[in-house]
């Protein structure tokens, strides 16, 4: 190795070091610390009872109704919202792709849900569905308290998530749509494909990698859902998500041992999801343009 390349390697590492160290210190280190804490009985309200108990916390979590309920709630919210977002995102993207006048207006409007604070969005929808302050019941001629029942509470939560994040999906998909050359669609038309066949046999396959990346990001994001649930139901009506369970154990009840076990399990779930996407659906993130 020449001196010049050695110097270049050093400079490269030097420039990356602050960012890498920060990322390791604030994620990897606490994660390991959580792993350590999860092996202890450790409740901040009773610090004296701290004691190494091995995997007992995990057994406690995995043996509890709350965990499995929260897991299934989270999976349900994730699957439902991501599925709706994908379809709606495609519709929005196609509208933006085809609208000649007003494309800018649509794009700007869609950025508003993306930019708005999640807590504010959740509040706005909560008030909108609220039977005393809201306009939705009046509009639909209904009287129920949406957030007081499990099914309708899920509906409100999922619809808030969809509203907030469909923009992201739509903008990614729009960018993907513009990558499909116009000539290919014209060629397909001449080859005898109708609009539906053009979409499914040309547009969709060409957008595969964009769709997969968008789904991966959105799935992992939805799986971590916290803000909306916290603001709208705070987990009541049996709508707790995994993040709510973790928060309650760690911050509300100050049970660091048990809470850390929940944390580690959530981390493993996310890891598994990412692995499924990357291996299972063959998203090759490294295949993207080498910087």
């Amino acid at each position: 190795m020449s001196r010049r390349t050695a110097a270049e390697h050093r400079l490269g590492w030097l420039l990356c070091a602050p960012a890498v160290i920060a990322m390791l210190l604030v994620t990897a280190w606490p994660m390991l610390y959580a792993l350590w804490l999860s092996m202890f009985r450790y409740d901040l309200r009773f610090p004296a009872e701290r004691e190494f108990i091995g995997f007992d916390n995990y057994l406690a979590v995995l043996g509890s109704e709350v965990w499995w309920q929260a897991l299934s709630n989270t999976v349900f919210i994730t699957v439902a919202s991501v599925a709706v977002e994908l379809v709606l995102g495609f519709v929005f993207a196609l509208i933006m792709h085809h609208a000649i006048i007003g494309r800018r207006l649509v794009r700007t409007s869609l950025l508003v849900p993306y930019g708005i604070i999640t807590v504010v969005a959740a509040m706005s929808w909560r008030f909108a569905f609220d039977p005393t302050t809201g306009f939705i019941n009046a509009l639909l001629g209904l009287e129920g308290a949406w957030l007081a029942e499990r099914g309708s509470a899920f509906f409100v939560i999922i619809q808030t998530e969809v509203w907030k994040t469909t923009s992201f999906m739509a903008l990614l998909l729009l960018a993907g749509l513009t990558l499909v050359p116009d000539d290919l669609l014209r060629a397909a038309r001449v080859d005898g494909a109708d609009a539906v066949q053009r979409f499914f046999r040309v547009t969709l396959p060409l957008m595969r990698s964009v769709i997969m990346v968008a789904l991966l990001f959105r799935t992992l994001d939805a799986f971590r859902i916290f803000d909306t649930v916290f603001v709208q139901t705070r987990g009541s009506q049996n709508t707790e998500s995994l993040s709510i369970v973790g928060y309650n154990a760690l911050i509300t009840r100050l049970n660091l041992g048990l809470g850390s076990a929940v944390s580690v399990l959530i981390f493993l779930c996310v890891l598994a999801l990412a692995a499924i996407y990357i291996k299972g659906f063959g998203i090759d993130l490294s295949q993207r343009k080498e910087p």
């Binding site: 050359p181 000539d183 290919l184 001449v190 080859d191 005898g192 109708d194 060409l206 595969r208």
Partner: peptide, 20 residues
């Protein structure tokens, strides 16, 4: 008529070959 009903074939400047 729609292009598909004209039984004409076209070669594009960009070739328009389906990459997938």
């Amino acid at each position: 008529l729609d292009p598909k009903d004209r039984n004409m074939a076209m070669v594009f400047q960009s070739y328009a070959i389906y990459p997938h």
